[in-house]
Computed example of a mutant assay.
Amino acid sequence: MKARTRWDVVCTVEDLVADSGVAVWTEDGPVAVFYLPHRLPALFAVSHTDPFTGTNVLARGITGDLDGEPVVASPLYKQHFSLRSGQCLEDDGARVKVYPVLLDGNRIRLEIPVTQAASVAA
């Protein structure tokens, strides 16, 4: 059985900062949305929570490119996370959740899993 999802509006294009991230709140928890205007695709979204510390800091991380892989470096211990896969490049056992992103006019939408409680209420 396929998990149910929906495309939630989390921010607008005006909220984004080039080569940086913004933190947004979703029903699935805090998410970091990154805008890298010199890449295609230019929008990425991963969990905002650093898996090594449990703190919500990844939107404040430094974005970059390691061997062609778009990454964000955690501002705490500097581990690099792929913005495409969520995999930590320094530790095979660590990763962050990745969210599909859609530009809908001026709105940024994320594909978010629908919890059973939310799907019953909807």
Rank of each mutant, 00 (worst) to 15 (best):
K2Q: 12
K2T: 13
K2N: 12
A3M: 09
R4A: 13
W7F: 06
D8M: 09
D8N: 09
V10F: 10
C11R: 05
C11Q: 07
C11S: 15
V13W: 04
E14G: 02
E14A: 15
E14D: 15
D15H: 13
L16S: 11
L16M: 11
V17D: 06
A18R: 14
G21Y: 07
G21L: 09
V22H: 02
V22A: 01
V22C: 06
A23Q: 13
V24C: 05
V24Q: 08
W25D: 13
W25M: 12
T26S: 10
E27D: 15
D28G: 12
G29C: 10
P30E: 14
P30G: 08
P30N: 08
V31G: 03
A32Y: 01
A32K: 02
V33D: 04
V33H: 02
V33T: 09
F34W: 07
F34D: 07
Y35T: 02
L36T: 11
L36W: 05
P37W: 05
R39H: 11
R39A: 10
L40R: 08
L40H: 06
P41I: 10
A42T: 05
L43W: 12
A45W: 00
T49M: 13
D50S: 09
P51T: 06
P51C: 07
F52H: 15
T53R: 03
T55D: 12
T55Q: 15
N56F: 02
V57C: 04
V57Q: 03
L58P: 00
L58A: 05
R60L: 14
G61N: 08
G61Y: 07
I62N: 04
I62H: 06
T63N: 06
G64D: 05
L66Y: 04
D67E: 15
G68I: 00
G68K: 06
G68P: 01
E69L: 03
S74P: 01
P75R: 07
P75E: 10
P75T: 13
Y77I: 06
Y77R: 14
K78D: 05
K78V: 08
Q79T: 09
H80G: 00
H80I: 01
H80V: 01
H80P: 00
F81E: 00
L83E: 01
L83R: 02
R84A: 08
S85F: 01
G86K: 03
G86Q: 04
G86P: 01
Q87M: 06
Q87R: 14
Q87C: 04
Q87S: 09
C88S: 11
L89P: 04
L89W: 06
L89Q: 06
D91L: 11
D92K: 11
G93C: 03
A94G: 00
R95D: 04
R95L: 04
R95A: 14
V96P: 00
K97C: 00
V98Q: 03
V98P: 00
V98A: 05
P100N: 09
L102Q: 15
L103W: 04
D104C: 10
D104K: 07
N106K: 11
R107S: 13
R107V: 03
R107M: 07
I108F: 06
R109H: 09
L110C: 09
L110R: 05
P113C: 07
P113L: 14
P113H: 11
V114E: 12
V114K: 12
T115N: 07
Q116H: 08
Q116D: 14
A117C: 00
A117S: 12
A118Q: 13
A118G: 03
S119G: 00
A122E: 15
A122L: 14
